[in-house]
């Protein structure tokens, strides 16, 4: 089999079209698991921030979860706050610095369990912040326990035969809940299971930050991410598993955009 030498850039005339890492990361090395979706989503967010010219004017507020490991890698002013409290902390920062883009990075355990009150109240107040939710349907960092976002049938460390409505109740679709409140400006659900879904995530994250710049209210992008370790599946099986489990309960797409033309009421 002919293999190309990929140890250094090509000798032939060429141009670089993609870098290892976004420039807002200080290093490529991180401790997240093989096949984890979180670094993929974080790349997209950081690239959009740079693209929108916000690299020198944004503050990140991180919750507690595996993504928290990125706090030491981000070349962004950032703070790690109490579990679930990111939207409340971001509220304070944004009110003191209204011209700075303020965004949260949270997991489903962080946002939908520990901090459900914070995200809902921040939305109801119409806080002008952008919230990024990395939804893998488990408390990944602590070993794959069930969250309020785990779907019916999902096997987790404490629902080993699958989540049932009788024993564990129903999952909370946070994006739809946030969209139902008047204070939200933009809500979308995306995924990082393949290159096309990553491109769509990029478009949604861009709009979310634009709505904040326009002062429209709270924006939320939920991104479904792979957690092969917490799901007890092989890394290469994570993308299919994601779409078979969370993907079936949580439809992808834009749920609300206040800035969009009011087509439905135009007739």
């Amino acid at each position: 089999m002919t293999l190309i030498d990929t140890r250094q850039p090509p000798e032939q005339a060429s141009r670089k079209v993609a870098d290892y890492k976004p420039s807002l990361l200080q290093s490529e090395e991180h401790g997240l698991c093989p096949g984890c979706g979180e670094p993929v989503a974080i790349r997209v967010v950081l690239e959009v921030i740079e693209e929108l010219g916000l690299a020198q004017n944004n503050i990140a507020v991180l919750g507690h979860g595996c993504y928290g490991g990125f706090i030491m890698l981000l070349d962004v002013d950032s703070t790690l706050c109490l579990h679930g409290r990111a939207p409340a902390t971001a509220t304070g920062i944004k009110r003191m610095r209204p011209d700075t883009a303020v965004w949260t990075l949270q997991g489903d355990g962080d946002m939908v369990n520990e901090g459900l009150a914070e995200i809902l109240h921040a939305t109801a107040r119409g806080e002008n912040i952008t919230c990024i939710l990395l939804n893998n349907g488990v408390f990944g960092d602590t070993g794959g326990q069930m969250t309020a976002a785990s779907v019916i049938g999902q096997r987790t460390k404490n629902s080993i035969d699958g989540r049932t409505a009788d024993d564990h109740g129903y999952p909370i679709a946070i994006a739809e809940l946030v969209a139902s409140l008047q204070g939200s400006a933009y809500v979308a659900r995306c995924s990082v299971h393949n290159a096309a879904s990553i491109a769509q995530t990029r478009r949604c994250v861009r709009k979310a930050f634009q709505r904040q710049t326009e002062g429209q209210g709270l924006s939320l992008v939920e991104i479904l991410t792979m957690c092969p370790t917490g799901w007890f599946v092989a890394p290469e099986a994570g993308t299919d598993y994601l779409m078979e489990s969370l993907g079936k309960t949580y439809p992808l797409g834009e749920i609300k955009d206040r800035a969009a033309a009011p087509a439905a009421t135009a007739e």
Partner: peptide
């Protein structure tokens, strides 16, 4: 490992959680 036939589409770079790829496009196909 890379076999001949890469198009420089960057899909591998985008899906990789560990920032393993840099992608180049040749000025003239090789």
């Amino acid at each position: 490992e890379l076999k001949p036939g890469c198009t420089g589409c960057t899909a591998c770079q985008q899906v990789c959680p560990d920032f393993v790829f840099e992608v180049f496009k040749f000025e003239d196909p090789v």
